[in-house]
Design a protein around this nucleic acid. Sequence first.
DNA 1: AAGTATAATTGTACCGGTACAATTAAACAA
DNA 2: TTGTTTAATTGTACCGGTACAATTATACTT
Lengths: 236, 236
Amino acid sequence: MLKYQQIANEIEQYIREQNLKQGDKLPVLEQMMNQYAVSKSTITKALELLERKGIIFQLRGSGIFVRRHNRPGYMSLFSTQGFKSNLGNRILTSDVLDVSVMKPDVLVAENLGIDVTDDVYRVERVRYVDGEVLCHEESYYVKAIVPYLNREIVADSIFDYVQSALGVTIGFSDMYLQVGRLTESEAEYLGLHEDDPTLRIETIFHLTNGKPFDYSRITYHYAHSQFVIQANGPYM
Amino acid sequence: MLKYQQIANEIEQYIREQNLKQGDKLPVLEQMMNQYAVSKSTITKALELLERKGIIFQLRGSGIFVRRHNRPGYMSLFSTQGFKSNLGNRILTSDVLDVSVMKPDVLVAENLGIDVTDDVYRVERVRYVDGEVLCHEESYYVKAIVPYLNREIVADSIFDYVQSALGVTIGFSDMYLQVGRLTESEAEYLGLHEDDPTLRIETIFHLTNGKPFDYSRITYHYAHSQFVIQANGPYM
DNA sequence: AAGTATAATTGTACCGGTACAATTAAACAA
DNA sequence: TTGTTTAATTGTACCGGTACAATTATACTT
């Protein structure tokens, strides 16, 4: 692991262990340089990472402070979107409804930047947090990139498998949000009624080289899905 | 304006003018160093900024490439959330329903980190994109930070006013998303029916020094609100 | 052709430095 | 006490450098 990532983790752990709260001040940059025995720019990179994660904020001339959202019941939108990070102490489980190889339809192929004759894995799951229905997910993986999947892998975190076993790294993603009403079949999966409100998110996940490898459609249970997004900006 | 911001803008403009599309390659780092006559780290900072904005992605050993989402009809979630950036060529207007000074209730005071005896500005608006109803917004500004508002300021971009006229800078924000059903009065503002689905977003905006200065509740028209979020990560 | 080793290209990690602007604390004056 | 100037603190911008890993192109086999 890179130095600045390692340091970022240690600082995050420090905040957790010391139970620091919103506005609490961290050691100053120079002290961190000495403590971790690295140059200023390495500490700066570590802190910048934590800033992007919404853990801290830095104030020139003043110091480095803890930032915290912490509304109970709200999950980070990204934590449920493959980017594991921390779902806190909540337990995430899945019912696997389907894992199969197939040819994509035009829409799926388009979103994945492949041909309709290329193979994809289709995965369908219902996901739960602490036993409560969170969402219904239908996702497609480019088989040329993810050559093998089974129900066991899919029941756990697909992204962990893809990264560790296949050695590919996920780069970035585009998420498309929409609000609408449930269809009858969706309602059944979620234990709700037809026409109940829902949040739909389509996501295209790309590898670091820019190639899409996963296109997924998620339909959320409106009552069990409350999300937090921490934004830094405006960037200029 | 800082060098790296300026360069980021110029590169963004270059991409637009040259009409570069997804996957197109940009000049290599060293050429940019020469072209803008700055050091490597300054170019790197500019590119990192563009990466965070979802404009480009960088691939070690290969080059710098254009990233593009571009689903028609989808707005960046952050562009409607004060962070102006680009709403593309779509026109954003407002009906101002209320601008008044008042004492906050407990919930508002808590979210703003102030006392119920402190003054706040209450602003209520209905917002439109290209003439179509986008959302109903109710927001509260800490009067100690934003000492004056009127209907004219509020009809335009409040954030532009706050930053330029008051000289304070917005640092970061926490957004809380929820899906639910419209109340009768909300439905009326949005031209919808009671119990129609809706996306609700509460946002707390902080200054760079970490102090909250704006707490807002937005209720979106489900049919006219489709959002895109571009994520980079996992960060480690 | 088709695979394989080799070399060139290219961005990232990390160092260590100077200058500076924003904040805060200290000293001072009214 | 209260405001004002001054000094110390502290993070950020920017420079210019070395080393390196991932990618891509080239040359070399088979």
